[in-house]
Amino acid sequence: MTDLRQHQRDVRTYLIGFGLAVVLTVIPFVITATGGLSRTWFDLAILFAAIVQVLVHLRYFLHIDLRHTPRENLLALGFTGLLMVIMIGGTLWIMGNLAARMMGT
């Protein structure tokens, strides 16, 4: 009986995650097709939907949970997130700065 309940809960988690992911996927695709936003707002909207969807995948598909996931896994994930910000952000800053100084734009 408990096994069955556990099963239903697991499947439901996946289905909720899938539903949220579909919504968060449809939004950017619809925005892209309809147009009308300025480039900046478009970029921000897409980025926002993407980040939220990544969090949805982590929560519902990879079952990351601030209370139950072991601390060592969370630390690795958090550090990865930090480094992604440093590396991508740093690259954009450094290379953008170089390009601006070379091209004068």
Partner: peptide, 8 residues
């Protein structure tokens, strides 16, 4: 010395 600006 690659040429980045002062702030970088």
């Amino acid at each position: 010395t690659m040429g980045a600006g002062a702030s970088v």
